[in-house]
């Protein structure tokens, strides 16, 4: 009697252990190495074209700005490596030069980075097959940028799920490395560029986002959100410059979401 209960308990524990073991290795059936390698190389190749070109023009300007403000080269490169968000990096340079306090600078940079929350939430499902999250996804989140987001949101859905993470790492690491080199070149030789060429470069990154988002957003609700956000952006900026990015996202996004729901509801009734 006592013995059989003990045996049952042992069996139950074994079952739990085996379940734990299988949940600990969500990627037990990893894709073959050559598939991963080819996908990563495709990502590198895709990024080596226009996506890194656009980032390079932005980071050349950033390097030149940092050098102009007599900030250290080490800090400038670390900024690209650890913050990896040009708006936040520019805020940091400007506020540090103005002599704002440590705490206020950190708070402002942190607030400017809130956009990564909705961007990451919308993006992550593309990178995982089930709702399982591993350290790879936390590493992937650090490499996310607007450029990578806009590109991969349109390209990844057409790709087999097993190749996406490798492609993404190849793509984003290429962007990161070329931006680091650009920050350095900009720091050393940035003011050699004529002023009008610098202006043209500054305009090219928003144009890149404009083309890729308007041309590659396939879902109706996504397009609706783009239009609503584009209308809200400048209007909200007139009211509150500091909060304009976040507020135009929340207002424009909510309006688009509600309109889409409303129309879906109506067509279902009809």
């Amino acid at each position: 009697m006592g013995e059989s209960r003990q045996r049952l308990r042992r069996k139950g524990r074994q079952l739990i252990d085996s379940q734990r073991a299988s949940s600990r290795h969500p990627n037990a059936d990893q894709p073959p190495t050559h598939v991963v390698r080819d996908a990563a190389l495709n990502g590198v190749r895709a990024a080596a074209g226009i996506p890194s070109w656009v980032l390079v023009t932005g980071y050349l300007g950033f390097g030149a700005l940092a050098a102009g403000h007599q900030l250290s080269l080490l800090g400038t490169l670390l900024s690209t490596l650890t913050i990896w968000a040009l708006p936040g990096q520019l805020i940091l340079v400007e506020m540090h030069t103005l002599g704002a306090s440590f705490f206020v600078i950190l708070l402002t940079v942190t607030l400017s980075a809130i956009r990564f929350l909705p961007m990451t939430v919308a993006f992550m499902p593309l990178l995982r097959e089930a709702r399982v999250v591993s350290w790879r996804h936390y590493a992937a989140a650090h490499l996310l940028s607007i450029s990578g987001w806009a590109w991969c949101m349109s390209r990844l859905p057409e790709m087999p799920p097993a190749q996406r993470l490798a492609y993404y790492f190849g793509f984003t690491l290429t962007l990161m490395v070329s931006s680091l080199i650009a920050s350095w070149i900009g720091y050393v030789a940035g003011d050699l560029l004529p002023a009008n060429a610098q202006l043209a470069f500054v305009l090219m990154s928003p144009i890149y986002f404009l083309l890729i988002l308007s041309g590659e957003t396939r879902t109706g609700i996504g397009r609706l959100a783009l239009v609503a956000g584009a209308i809200c952006g400048p209007l909200v900026h007139l009211v509150s410059a500091q909060w304009s990015v976040l507020l135009s996202g929340v207002i424009g996004g909510s309006v688009a979401w509600w309109l889409h729901r409303y129309w879906q509801h109506k067509t279902r009734q009809a």
Partner: peptide, 28 residues
């Protein structure tokens, strides 16, 4: 909730782009 957050992400970026074109700050 997910579709709302995605809408916010798309609208945020579109808002950023149109703001840079209509009301730029910095060198533009």
């Amino acid at each position: 909730l997910f579709s709302w957050i995605s809408c916010v992400a798309f609208a945020m970026l579109a808002g950023l782009i149109s703001r840079v074109i209509f009301l730029p700050t910095g060198s533009l």
